[in-house]
Design a protein around this nucleic acid. Structure first.
Length: 276
DNA sequence: GTCCATGTTCTTTA
DNA sequence: CTAAAGAACATGGA
């Protein structure tokens, strides 16, 4: 469910409330969402103060005052919200963090359990995660795309190639860059990679500003829905007219994922260079 | 009952 | 061996 903009929004909405607070108690921590299984949780966090909260890829990283850190991944259906202690505990609540003397607590709910809590220790090293899309350079992106012959959409979904993009923002970014999702990654021209890099950054920034996309049940740390779904150009708009050229938005399966594109704005082959 | 879902990882195939 | 495709994971909504 949550991609970079949603995860960033969760970070932004919980940080002011929980940073600097000592964790007094942890309740209802489901065992099967901890990696490595049953790492010293909750002992590793009890009594520790949250020094900072940040985002890396789609991960919400908690740095503790003892130098250790862990992260929460929301998977497909995860929620991380600040709620009054007195609120009824929702079904599929896996972890509740209580803070000394505070009437609110942080709750991790994830019905499908694709998410989890992962221990990083004192290294803070994130492996199997590529460069951040908001800061990646054109040259770096180009070099990494040259290494694979997969469809550009599949390449952009590969978190090791570039981190943080998911099904929504890949489709939206490719539309903004006027590149068809089935194009071979290694065959994009440098000009197309330039457009793609700019389109990714622009799309993500706008989505963050809108609080992310709430298609189904995504909410931020305060329980509020995002509004970027209203600005989608292709995702979830199959059968509707393209907002640029009125051509019907197509939907098909690529790499096992539903894929949306405008066949006119995003030609399946790179348009030939016109000369005069 | 069926199909689909904003993600990731493991297995199978080529 | 590697790259790429496919299956699996678990739950709920249409």
């Amino acid at each position: 469910m949550p991609e970079l903009p949603e995860v960033q929004t969760v970070v932004d909405t919980i940080a002011p409330t929980v940073v600097g607070r000592p964790i007094r108690r942890c309740r209802r921590s489901a065992f099967d969402i901890l990696t490595p299984a049953g790492f010293d949780f909750p002992n590793a966090v009890l009594g520790r103060t949250i020094a900072s909260i940040s985002r890396r890829a789609k991960r919400i990283v908690f740095r503790l005052d003892d130098g250790n850190s862990f992260f929460i991944h929301l998977g497909m259906s995860g929620r991380l919200t600040i709620e009054p202690n007195s609120n009824p505990v929702a079904k599929h609540t896996h972890a509740v963090f209580e803070f000394a003397g505070e009437p609110f607590e942080l709750r991790f709910v994830d019905p499908r359990r694709f998410g989890g809590i992962f221990w990083l220790g004192d290294s803070g090293v994130h492996d199997s995660v590529g460069p951040e899309p908001l800061t990646i350079g054109v040259r770096t992106l180009h070099r990494r795309l040259l290494r694979t012959n997969r469809a550009i959409k599949s390449a952009l979904l590969d978190q090791k190639l570039i981190a943080g993009l998911g099904n929504i923002y890949v489709d939206e970014s490719l539309f903004a860059a006027r590149i068809h999702p089935t194009r071979v990654a290694s065959e994009l021209s440098i000009d197309e990679v330039r457009r793609l890099s700019a389109a990714i950054k622009r799309t993500l920034r706008r989505a963050i500003a809108a609080g992310g996309s709430s298609l189904r049940d995504y909410v931020d740390g305060a329980g509020r829905r995002g509004t970027f779904q209203n600005a989608h150009r292709v995702f979830g708009r199959s059968g509707e007219p393209c907002r640029t050229c009125r051509t019907t938005i197509e939907k098909f399966t690529l790499g096992g994922r539903s894929t949306h594109a405008c066949p006119a704005c995003q030609p399946p082959q790179e348009p030939p260079v016109t000369r005069n």
